[in-house]
Design a binder for these strands. Structure first.
Length: 456
DNA sequence: TTTTGAGTTGTTCGA
DNA sequence: GTCGAACAACTCAAA
């Protein structure tokens, strides 16, 4: 917008930077999304006479190089908040200025940037609710800026990589085959999702968002992550078109949680790697490779957990309610370090986002800011019965159980033998027996938590 | 400064 | 079946 208003010829560039992020280099599912998102962006820009230039390498060096090639007067970008990106972009800004090139950066992806919200003491918020109370009143008029009327493409014949040469898509095996049925990356897909959500789902969101078998959520997370739509656009649209009420309020709060995650990551840079609560450094995590593998493959023997992990693998996304159940299962039932789960999600989620992923894993594990209380250990059977009562979700993702009556679907080991037989289920052969007993696991987790209470 | 109320998402047990 | 209490203690944010 600002770059177009300047009137000067415009170069649009995307830099694939796999060097600066270190271990947080984009994961596999995210690369699938990126490929299609860039394809869509390139086509949109081409319709307006602008060529999208693709370059690869350290973003700061690549941008400086390109600015020199094109003899650019100014460089514009939307700010990133990952610790590695902040350092890089600050250096870039200084370097550009040294060369006499203007550098302008903007807020394109947050409702409020992390340094704009402070407690009365001037510090960062460490609890969600006070942050939200501070955030909400600042959003009375968040009308998005209009799109630029016309774009004036730069005719300089700048070199661009071919998107295919980045090899962002999986080949053999093509584990992303099913993603395209669920997702339409790009700005257009984002706005269609928002429209559908506002029209059909938003008013009942408070209730239906918890039912993984029902399309009750917005599905905007990957679009937001990739900047195909901004939270300000979403907020403005929801406030304008959804009647005030529980549904709207709950959804707006979810946008608030996204802000809270960014706030935490900004102020606590090691959030993705280190326990926010230091006493968790003594937590007796174990690592059972077989159990971890069963979890990743959706073979734990707990249907709701397995359904979630398989949905993740098949679509690059998992329903939020089920993310909590699966994350709780890994950290509390299996006592596996939250960072193992965080890394798995990083690679398999199309909406993989450093702030949301790390803040949420720490929240579930109990090690985070404003975290879930230690005694909140999800019972996968109860959760399944409560939120997937009819069993639609489990039947969809764990088809080997689809003929079981709903009554036994979430605890097939309780089903009488003839019922199993009629449904074609043989525990331990067509579907695994639970890899760990729930109450045993619960007792063990509670004991582990009290061990760090004493240590602290 | 001190005090106070509150803190996303749950489970289990016993009445 | 339903309901309320207990499950730690701590830290946060504001009054």
């Amino acid at each position: 917008m600002a770059a177009a208003d300047d009137g000067a010829p415009l170069i649009a560039v995307y830099v694939l930077d796999d060097e600066t992020p270190g271990q947080w280099k984009r994961g596999g599912a995210s690369r699938w999304w990126l490929h299609h998102s860039l394809e869509s962006l390139g086509a949109d820009l081409a319709r307006h006479g602008v060529t999208l230039i693709l370059r690869k390498g350290r973003a700061d060096s690549v941008i400086r190089q390109l600015a020199r090639e094109a003899d650019a007067q100014a460089v514009y970008w939307n700010r990133c908040y990952e610790p590695f990106a902040r350092g890089r972009d600050t250096k870039l800004k200084d370097a550009l200025k040294d060369e006499g090139i203007e550098a302008h950066s903007f807020n394109g992806s947050l409702l409020a940037e992390p340094w704009t919200l402070k407690t009365r003491d001037g510090g960062p918020f460490r609890v969600f609710s006070p942050l939200y109370r501070a955030l909400e009143p600042t959003l009375d008029n968040v009308a998005p800026l209009p799109a630029p009327k016309r774009l004036n493409g730069f005719e300089g014949g700048l070199a661009s990589d071919a998107l295919e040469s980045w090899k962002l898509l999986p080949t053999a095996p093509d584990w992303a085959a099913g993603f395209g049925e669920v997702w339409t990356p790009g700005e257009d897909g984002a706005h269609k999702r928002l429209c559908a959500f506002v029209k059909d789902r938003a008013k009942d969101y408070a209730d239906t968002r918890n039912l993984p078998g029902v399309p009750g959520t917005s599905g905007l997370s990957p679009h937001l992550h990739f900047g195909e739509i901004s939270p300000r656009q979403v907020w403005a649209r929801v406030v304008a078109d959804v009647p005030a009420g529980k549904g709207r309020e709950t959804f707006c709060k979810e946008l608030g949680w996204r802000e809270f995650s960014y706030h935490l990551l900004y102020h606590y840079e090691d959030l993705p790697e280190a326990n926010y609560q230091k006493k968790f450094n003594q937590f007796p995590w174990g690592f059972d490779a077989g159990a971890f593998k069963a979890w990743t493959r959706g073979q734990t023997g707990y249907p709701i957990v397995d359904a979630g992990m398989r949905e993740l693998w098949a679509t690059g996304w998992m329903h939020n309610r089920v993310r909590m159940i699966c994350a709780s299962f890994l950290t509390k039932h299996l006592l596996i370090d939250w960072r193992k789960g965080e890394t798995w999600f990083w690679d398999t989620l199309v909406d993989a986002d450093l702030a949301n992923n790390s803040a949420s894993w720490q929240w579930v594990a109990g090690s985070g800011a404003d975290a879930a209380p230690y005694f909140r250990i999800f019972n996968p059977v109860t959760q399944g019965e409560k939120f997937d009562a009819g069993g639609e979700y489990v039947r969809r993702w764990v088809p080997e159980l689809k003929d079981l009556p709903a009554k036994y679907l979430h605890a097939p080991w309780d089903a009488p033998e003839p019922v199993l037989k009629r449904a074609g289920v043989s525990l331990g052969s067509t579907y695994p027996k639970p890899i760990i007993d729930h109450s045993t696991a619960r007792e063990r987790a509670l004991a582990a938590f009290s061990s760090i209470k004493e240590a602290a």
